[in-house]
């Protein structure tokens, strides 16, 4: 009985048109239909934050959104964060420099969450950052490296001297 629908979405600036089963989540659509496997699935019920993407510029759990709901919308995934194939975004650089990742499973979700947050709060405190990533679980870093990276990236994005 589960019907299908044809949807048009823009992902990382590229337009796609696909027929999807209506019960498919946006996360599964991105991974299985578009092959964008940078978006990770951890808990699949909205707790771990690994599947965080941006829907029209706002971070959202792609496991708690249906693909059909993304029809006509703009999506950004981790594949669209770096400005080019051989250049990293300042936040990606900072995560690398400050040991903000080990296994990397949570990193796509952390990136998409922090990019939105740093847009809203260009000069955050450490406590602000910890609150902002409270919806992203990381089992490797103990969060310290992620927080350091976010502080460094914020400074770099404000145009301050990079440390």
């Amino acid at each position: 009985m589960s019907a299908t629908r044809t949807i048009s979405v823009t992902v990382n600036g590229k337009a796609y048109e696909r027929e999807v089963e209506v019960r498919v989540t946006l996360a599964d659509f991105l991974r299985q239909e578009l092959g964008l496997t940078g978006t990770h699935l951890g808990c699949e019920h909205g707790v771990c934050g690994a599947c965080t993407i941006q829907l029209n510029g706002r971070s959202a759990r792609s496991c708690l959104t249906l693909a059909v709901q993304a029809d006509g919308q703009e999506i950004k995934t981790v594949e669209g964060v770096a400005p080019s194939a051989d250049e990293l975004h300042p936040l990606q650089e900072a995560l690398s420099e400050h040991h903000g990742l080990q296994c990397g499973f949570c990193t796509p979700g952390i990136l998409l969450t922090l990019l939105e947050f740093l847009d809203d709060n260009p000069d955050p405190s450490e406590a602000d950052i910890r609150l902002a990533i409270s919806g992203n679980l990381c089992r490797c870093t103990g969060y310290q490296g992620i927080v350091d990276a976010a502080l460094a990236a914020a400074e770099r994005l404000r145009g301050g001297a990079a440390k």
């Binding site: 934050g49 829907l55 706002r58 971070s59 759990r61 939105e116 902002a132 919806g135």
Partner: peptide, 9 residues
Amino acid sequence: VGHIQTRNR
């Protein structure tokens, strides 16, 4: 209420 990502939706 939840986190930034869940409050957005």
